[in-house]
Design a protein around this nucleic acid. Structure first.
Lengths: 110, 110
DNA sequence: TTTGTATATCGCAATATTACGATGAATATT
DNA sequence: AATATTCATCGTAATATTGCGATATACAAA
């Protein structure tokens, strides 16, 4: 069926999964890392930077924008993207809560 | 083509993506959360706990085990699973490095 | 107004993922 | 030994994702 049964999981579980999927592809990891590195809007050089075709990059940007992790604004003929810091922090909070679960209580039974 | 071009990305970028994909599905999030909650091996009740068919759970467990995030051992007629704490910490390290990038320098330009 | 440049969208092909019924393998129980 | 229980694997169907050529759109420059 290929269709994830999201309805049987909690909102929190689905949210974790959705955010995780956002950087579950190296191209999106690379895009986000580049935006962080540049420290400002990136207007245009992402295609050269990443090494995928322009429509492919555009599609990955669309996904990240749809999730809210990046913001984009038209700047003349090019479009500028940058990290949406508020959403990033929100995501960090949610994922850290999951990643930082108390592991000390785990018995090494297997 | 549906085939991620992993070869054009760094090992680090691919590693982040692979770990992120591991909990890019709510069922795997639920499984991992349950293992954490129980604090010990889980022998058998995962199917009832999660609410997916037994082969589906088995498949998700296989993926998590392949990645090394969980360990499993045969215990009579049932199989017991638990968190692989070493691998979990390794993953946490890698993902935290990505999530905790310095966001303070990001200009709100878009 | 035409031309160039940059990005988005469409359409398609290929691979990946998700889900589960049917079946198999292993062990425990009777 | 026969049966029951538990989990893994196989096979298959459906949907999702990835990638890109072709094309559309929007603006700038000439």
């Amino acid at each position: 069926m290929g269709l994830a049964k999201t309805e049987i999981f909690s909102d929190q579980q689905n949210e974790i999964a959705i955010f995780a999927k956002a950087f579950g592809h190296p191209a999106r990891v690379a895009i986000l890392q580049h935006l962080f590195k540049i420290n400002t809007c990136v207007c245009g050089d992402l295609v050269n930077e990443i090494g995928l075709a322009q429509p492919t990059i555009s599609q990955h940007l669309k996904e990240l924008k749809l999730l809210g992790l990046i913001k984009g604004s038209v700047e003349g003929t090019s479009v500028c993207y940058c990290i949406n810091t508020e959403k990033w922090l929100e995501m960090k909070e949610i994922l850290n809560q999951f990643l930082n679960q108390d592991i000390s209580k785990q018995g090494d039974c297997c």
